[in-house]
Nucleic acid binder design. Structure first.
Lengths: 202, 202
DNA sequence: ACGTTTTCTTATCTTTTGTTAACGTTTTGG
DNA sequence: CCAAAACGTTAACAAAAGATAAGAAAACGT
């Protein structure tokens, strides 16, 4: 856990700006309640069975959400740079998380603990801003998930794969294909066939 | 648009209680900013291409979310009694909605307009509560969508159908099957086959 | 550096789904 | 009340996906 650099703080502030704008005095108090952590590849950000008591903002790197079902590791979701990251339902409800979150590559993530979030919610100087910030995070996930549900209803697995590639994240080239297959809701074998189909269609 | 009965107000207050608790003075001001509307079957609550300037809470009845793609009507989602209802992304962003919302049956819905929401957000007496209320609605949709994404990844269409039936909503018996098929992400023909399979397996 | 594990592809076979069309039934609107 | 539209099921065929297994290549840990 290190102090944040001004570049990191700038990224966070820009990420929040569309929704929450702090004045200077508020910002100074806010940044006293956050920290930045460096995650090694495969290091866990959150763990199934444990309450997720923190929420993050990916400055650099990427993470993978997954759960274990019948002994198999199933990838649910990814967060890339400038995304929020959390087992947010667990963070909100205080129930144990259902999924793990791990770094896909060495990552820098700004972390706000629930305790610090609550301190800010109870600090009259920040309470109103923090309610708004909480709403922002929920809305961020909301819009992502809405898109995702819609993609399952209106697109084929092949279309979903091509759409994912269009984001141009190079980490997609490096991560195991079965993570992507899970994310798309298909088997790794099926993804391999889709990839071949795309190549030969070109 | 009618005044709300005390039973209706009680339902709303109970729906909000897990997250937002008003004191009596706050509640009196709050209820001056809301209204209840009766929707006929097929009457629109929100319309694609228009900004959704309101958010609702279903007291009685049910609604269907759908959009038109290549001339075809595709059902995305449902809200039943004691659910929130809105093209919430449009409500939040002020962008035109991408989907329609219509009543599946005669329905009573508590409506809060964006204007009244903003009046409350700017009223120091309610601002803090309203930030929290906004968060509540976002979180409601968040948890629903999270569940839904997870169901697409880990369940077969047949399992999703059986899970939907388990909710025991009788309106599921009465609405057209192709609404349900869309919602499950399959074709009406495929749903018909699944239904037959289930019957013969018994 | 080397043996193990993971990953990706390919093949085969089965199951499921999509597509289109037909047909009888039900619902709907004028 | 009647004609038109919408609906649900079924059939037939094509396309896609799941399951399983096998083999080669790459990544990993020690």
């Amino acid at each position: 856990m290190d102090a944040l650099t001004s570049a990191q703080l700038g990224a966070l502030r820009r990420g929040m700006e569309p929704y929450v704008v702090f004045n200077e005095a508020e910002w100074i108090v806010f940044i006293q309640h956050i920290s930045v952590h460096n995650f090694k590849k495969k290091q866990l950000f959150a763990e199934a069975g444990k309450v997720c008591n923190h929420v993050g903002f990916v400055l650099k790197g990427s993470v993978r959400y997954y759960h274990i079902k019948d002994g198999a590791d199933i990838t649910n979701y990814f967060s890339f740079e400038n995304d929020y990251v959390s087992s947010y339902t667990s963070f909100l409800t205080g129930e144990p998380a259902l999924n793990y979150i791990e770094a896909l590559e060495p990552s820098q993530i700004i972390v706000i603990t629930k305790k610090n979030m609550e301190l800010m919610l109870n600090n009259p100087m920040l309470a109103y801003r923090m309610e708004r910030f909480g709403r922002l995070i929920a809305e961020h996930y909301l819009i992502c998930y809405e898109d995702r549900v819609s993609s399952f209803i209106t697109q084929t697995p092949e279309e979903r794969y091509l759409k994912l590639l269009e984001t141009g994240r190079e980490v997609l080239q490096r991560m195991p294909q079965h993570y992507i297959a899970n994310f798309l809701g298909i088997t790794p074998v099926s993804l391999s066939r889709i990839r071949k189909r795309i190549l030969t269609e070109k």
